[in-house]
Design a protein around this nucleic acid. Structure first.
Lengths: 138, 138
DNA sequence: ATCTCAACCTCCAGACATTAGAGGTTTGAG
DNA sequence: CTCAAACCTCTAATGTCTGGAGGTTGAGAT
């Protein structure tokens, strides 16, 4: 049996976050010690690792809840699960595309500015003020 | 003179968000009509466009406040502005790198799942449960 | 057996950048 | 002049945690 602190150390999920996940219904309410402290076992550790992994991938709480619910019917076909992951993949791709445009623009801004001219002539300020200077759209 | 709704339409920033920016000190308190409604002019539109642009680039409110403050002393050299932009650039690059790893992993996960086997054998669930299946780190 | 102090408990509040709603007032077009 | 749309302020919610206050428990050392 693990304390909440043990669980935290092993998964890298902070203690209040574990309690939050319990509150959000991602983790079943833990069994308690005589003194009312949460006690966890192997299966809780696995589930928390699953949650953490999914969060790292950027899935939100409700998506994870959906996955967990689906996962509890292991005989059914996994089409829905596939759909959730695929939807998320396209979301991630969009974010990457956006960020790449931002990266280019910031690069351009920084490379034009040597840090030594007066602010009124600074390319950073000029290009932030005047969207027309941007090469891409965003 | 523009109403807050006009400003909103022209910049794509929602009305309550404009009021929020005023509250946060990014926009100066607008002049008011006789009936206490906000009235804006050209310079407000420019500044709001600046703010919006900076937010699109992912700068947070305090960074924007900093830029605005620096921009109001146009005789000083722009080293600080350059620093803010450069710091932000490295943040964006980190985000991109992270998301690319996620993209790869999600691709791998999705491609292994044809949506037709039982959930207990689904690669999505298996790889979320077992970090050891990941090729990269995250 | 007792002491001690880290780790635990609950509840509440804050962080971020908005967004939405309630309830009331002003504006401007017909 | 009327009346709906747009405005006002204030409050509260969103999502995902994170921190603190104030009090209790657990476990190792004496």
């Amino acid at each position: 049996m693990l304390s909440i602190g043990d669980l935290s150390k092993r998964t890298g999920v902070k203690v209040p976050t574990i309690r939050y996940y319990e509150q959000m219904g991602l983790l079943a309410a833990a069994t308690r010690s005589e003194g009312n402290q949460r006690r966890y076992e192997r299966s809780d550790l696995d589930r928390l690792a699953f949650i953490r992994h999914a969060r790292d991938l950027g899935l939100d709480i409700s998506a994870i809840r959906e996955l967990i619910a689906l996962g509890s019917h292991p005989q059914q076909p996994c089409g829905d699960i596939d759909r959730i992951a695929a939807e998320h993949l396209s979301g991630v791709r969009e974010k990457i595309a956006k960020l790449k445009k931002l990266e280019e623009e910031l690069e351009r801004i920084v490379s034009h500015c040597d840090g030594n001219h007066a602010i009124k002539d600074c390319y950073v300020i000029r290009s932030l003020s005047d969207h027309g200077l941007c090469e891409g759209e965003h």
